[in-house]
């Protein structure tokens, strides 16, 4: 089973990397870029077919390691 965990910075957390990318996009002349926030994507293969167990395992993975809950939110998607 394929899954994707997306980790993003919480709003209000300063993101200097996103700011630098935003600046670079603007200097490239790409029109209409208002702001950029950088995040992380984890593509994870889960063994078996139990979607409920997979969801629980992915949430555990995100809580314990993939995201730092002080500064980041995460979203789990099972495909």
């Amino acid at each position: 089973m394929k899954a994707r965990v997306t980790v993003t910075l919480k709003s209000g957390i300063l993101d200097p990397q996103g700011k630098a990318i935003e600046g670079a996009l603007k200097s490239l002349g790409i029109a209409g870029v208002a702001s950029v926030r950088q995040g992380k994507v984890f593509d994870i293969e889960i063994e078996g077919r139990d979607r409920k167990a997979a969801q629980a395992a992915l949430e555990q993975a995100a809580d314990k390691l993939l995201a730092n809950s002080l500064i980041e939110n995460y979203q789990v998607e099972l495909k």
Binding site: I13, L14, P16, Q17, A20, N68, L70, I71
Partner: peptide
Amino acid sequence: PGVLMRNTAM
């Protein structure tokens, strides 16, 4: 407590 983030000057 807290987190150490990227230096503001990058």
